[in-house]
Write a protein that binds this DNA or RNA. Structure first.
Length: 569
RNA sequence: GGGCCGGUAGCUCAGUUAGGGAGAGCGUCCGGCUUUUAACCGGACGGUCGGGGGUUCGAAUCCCUCCCGGCCCGCCA
């Protein structure tokens, strides 16, 4: 691989070579980094190869990063979970791996977010909090702004704790790192010093990417000692003293002009921040980053400039890069202001964490749509992927991928695990009684006497997810067994047929018999079978359609069914 | 306008790295489960592999070109 290839964030080669090594447990750190590329069914292996080729010191460091915003949403986890898979592959190969996620929390708040997530991750409007406190703090670092919910020490800490909580929910061990801390504890000080020492190089390099860089540009933004805002006018640098002189001139950000206070003062190298274009490669250096995935928005501008600055200003070796495509939600771009957003807790109400991890285990280069309406398709694909791991799917390609990726997707590989098909789980969600749900699943052959209790319990958990999905989408599975008699009128024929059926049920016949009897009864009363079923669905679901009715009724309490068929309760 | 990434069946996608049979699941349709009513089983239908051109005995795959979509190309991150 040439140096150019290594610098190309799109080169996510899945190798070339033999095609199967038969042995998934290949190696404890001494794997084939002999330059001979091997074919990989799982992209994370190809990335791990590239990382290993750098001969990194342990711990290998994998990083992601985010700028604090109002809401931590699923989009932020693209980066975290992609990094996680590479981390896991490297751990399997015997490396110690540290996965960090930096919060760019020394950045100034540029505009007040329209939506915020409360400490539980629920999205709330600005009206729920002291919006004025946010507005008064425009221009200050996120770490200097109070938590709008009054719990954490700052806005930044609030946001970071949300991300951390979501990562925990997904079982991704990630270490949150605060940029502000890196400045405060002196970690960044040598980087600031170097950028200022080599200010001419800094200007020349960054000038190739940003027009505003001129001969007065200084790659350091002090925090004003008077008003606390991040400023951009440095008037002098004293390398010996380790300070800069500045004027608080205010700044323009996103069309907003943030007023400076005019204060002129002195700041140390810890009392300010590097512009992000320097800060990013600076992080690579001080954290020793070996691999970093990033969204496609960074592929063309940020990444090349970061490499350039790392190599030609800061003397830092850039990490192995990887561009990932964005995913859309219900066909539209993620946007918290437009409300097209889903949070981790929200999605975990609808499916298991392993399904979500599976989604992010798929090829990062492909843009995908997370369609909540069709979530059953995603879950079905996961189930198939899981079966492929256990050799139960006749699909060579899928099986090769599953054999490699599946163990990283699930918390624990357990062959006896049972998955109820998602839409079937949604059908079970039409009733509330857990025993009834289990009985229906048993009748359908999903469990047998050998199914361990834990597997039954786990499988039934999906019913709650599918139920939440049916309710949230209000789709064709959103029926609920009616505990009260729905208001309905029936023809005399239909009424008589219902009475007949009630007698049949009262006689103690089972579900299968009831199903058969429904046809007989309808025929006997000379009514359309469809009309008769419709009457049944009306009585039990207050709907015109539903699940296979006879077998369903067979599982319910006999008295309840009889009374309902007689329209008595 | 330039650059990068993507475009395969109605839907969701695999296959493109290394040229050789166009595939899967779901949906649809038909049939089966004594008996149209969404859970189970079988079968069928379904694609100019975005269009065109080229290389090749042979192209979804390589090359050129065009179309469409996303991103980047002032600042910020």
């Amino acid at each position: 691989m040439s140096a150019d290839d290594r610098r190309d964030p799109h080169t996510l080669s899945t190798g070339g070579g033999s095609g199967d090594d038969g042995d998934a447990e290949s190696g404890t750190g001494d794997e084939t980094d002999d330059g001979e590329p091997t074919h990989h069914a799982f992209w994370a292996d190809a990335v791990a190869d590239a990382v290993a080729a750098r001969d990194p010191d342990d711990p290998v460091v994998i990083k992601g990063g985010v700028s604090p915003s109002g809401v931590a949403h699923l989009g932020n986890f693209n980066e975290i979970i992609r990094g996680y898979f590479v981390a896991e592959v490297l751990r399997e190969r015997g490396h110690e791996v540290r996965q960090v996620f930096t919060s760019d929390d020394k950045d100034p708040l540029r505009k007040v977010p329209r939506k915020l997530a409360d400490p539980d991750g629920n999205i709330v409007g600005l009206g729920e909090v002291d919006a004025g406190a946010l507005g008064r703090n425009l221009g200050k670092p996120y770490t200097d702004i109070p938590d709008p919910f009054g719990e954490k020490e700052s806005y930044a800490a609030h946001f970071a704790s949300l991300l951390k909580a979501d990562a925990d929910r997904l079982g991704v061990p990630v270490e949150m790192v605060s940029n502000t801390d890196l400045y405060a504890d002196g970690t960044f000080e040598p980087v600031v010093r170097k950028a200022l020492e080599r200010v001419d190089d800094a200007r020349e390099v960054l000038g190739q990417y940003q027009d505003k860089v001129d001969e007065t540009y200084v790659p350091f933004n002090p925090v004003c000692a008077e008003c606390g805002k991040v400023t951009e006018t440095v008037t002098a640098v004293d390398l010996e003293a380790g300070t800069v002189e500045y004027e608080c001139t205010g700044m323009e950000a996103g069309g907003n002009e943030i007023e400076g206070c005019g204060h002129a003062g002195t700041a140390t190298f810890r009392e300010g921040k590097l512009p992000w274009r320097f800060e990013w490669p600076g992080q690579w250096g001080v954290l020793g980053v070996d691999f970093e995935p990033f969204g496609k928005d960074h592929a063309e501008g940020s990444w090349p400039s970061g490499v350039d600055i790392a190599e030609n200003v800061l003397d830092v070796e850039p990490p192995v890069p990887m561009v990932y495509e964005w995913f859309t939600l219900n066909g539209e771009a993620l946007s918290s202001s437009a409300g097209n957003i889903v949070t981790v807790p929200e999605i975990l109400d609808l499916l298991e964490p392993e399904v979500l991890r599976y989604f992010f285990a798929l090829d990062p280069k492909k843009a995908r749509d997370l369609n909540l309406e069709r979530l059953d398709q995603l879950v079905d694909r996961f189930d198939r992927f899981e079966r492929a791991y256990f050799g139960e799917v006749d699909d060579e390609e899928l099986t090769r991928f599953a054999e490699r990726a599946y163990p990283f997707v699930v918390e624990e590989v357990r062959e006896e695990r049972v998955r109820l098909p998602y839409t079937f789980a949604a059908v079970l969600g039409m009733v509330e009684d857990p025993d009834f749900r289990e009985q229906l699943a048993r009748d359908e052959g999903h469990f047998d006497d050998d199914t361990p209790d834990w597997a039954v319990a786990d499988a039934l958990k999906r019913v709650e997810k599918a139920r939440a999905w049916a309710e949230r989408m209000d789709n064709e599975y959103n029926y609920r067994l009616q505990t009260e008699l729905p208001a309905a009128e029936f023809d005399a024929d239909v009424a008589a047929a219902l009475d007949d059926l009630a007698d049949f049920v009262a006689a103690g016949n089972d579900g299968e018999a009831i199903q058969g009897e429904m046809y007989e009864t309808a025929r006997r009363h000379d009514i359309e079978v469809s009309d008769f079923f419709a009457a049944g669905y009306r009585l039990f679901f207050d709907e015109t359609q539903g699940p296979r009715l006879g077998e369903f009724l067979g599982e319910l309490e006999t008295d309840f069914v009889v009374d309902r068929l007689r329209r008595e309760a």
